[in-house]
Amino acid sequence: MNQALRSTEILKRFTLITGKGGVGKSTLAAVLALVSAKRGHKTLVCELNTHERVSRLLGHEPAGSSIKKLEDNLWSVNINPSEAMQEYGLMKLKFRAFYRLVFENPLVGALVRFIPGINDLLMLGKAFNHEREVDQNGQPVWDRIIIDAPATGHSLTFFTLPKVIMNAVPSGNMHRESHDMWSLLADPARCGIHLVSLPEELPIQETMELFSALTEDIQLPVSTVFLNQVPAPAIPRHLSDDFDQWVDAPSDEVIKPLWDAGKLRQQHVNDSNRFLKKLERLDCPVICLPMQYGIDFGRREIDALAQTIDEAITTRD
């Protein structure tokens, strides 16, 4: 059973999801997007130049690089760096002819494209602009923005970029933009950074390392750690001690496979509990997402996970 959390802790205006590769970042992005949309928030889920897992997980066609409505209150986009560059250029230079004059200058074009990390910065910048976007009445266009951020390692560079640019460029537009982006990332009232992990040795270690790198070295607050694929116990609680004490494999050929499967699962459950305790020592809430057993992983599984999170929120809000 997960601890109860306020929806404002899990679903901040600007939510970034990160973690080691293969731990289920896109899954969590899809799940949170669904929880957010179902709670009536107008939600935009952003993928950063990827194979578009999120829209597929939700059972929709890939969205592409322009914003596409998936279902009630839920939109999706796969941000493309070169389009983001053009958008940013047009926004700053106002006229297409002016934009082309500047960007098609061979010297400028080559230099701008050579700024290290420029693609990541542009993609983050575009997501950031959606956060600021207002309609003609001055109301925010989006209530919630959820970003499937790059995998660990790369993600540290990703999160430090605004600060790097801010320090490298002492004044002007890029400095201002990076400064605003950094202020958003560092503001726990508006921005939530969620880490995703798995109940396995290396992912847990990397999550602990990423947590301290983010909170101590870079000084960005982490909202929540999600422990994904938490195994379900094979044995009812009141019988688990008995089963643990049954250490010698049965000689009966019919029972042996059942014993094997039970022991294997119980070991995973025990490991998972041990890892959970480790994560709980971090100064931030941990939410468990149960392992979804079954042939396929699709919309039905996403719905089930969304319900888990929704329950944790509902008991608290």
């Binding site: 094979a234 019988l239 039970g262």
Partner: peptide, 27 residues
């Protein structure tokens, strides 16, 4: 009967039925 000889054993017959269902599912 396969459980005979282990240090601890469930006591009620219904426990074995319940366990059997759960172990079969797990497998």
């Amino acid at each position: 009967s396969a459980w005979e000889g282990a240090a601890l054993k469930p006591k009620r017959e219904s426990d074995y039925h319940q366990l059997l269902t759960r172990l079969t599912l797990t497998l």
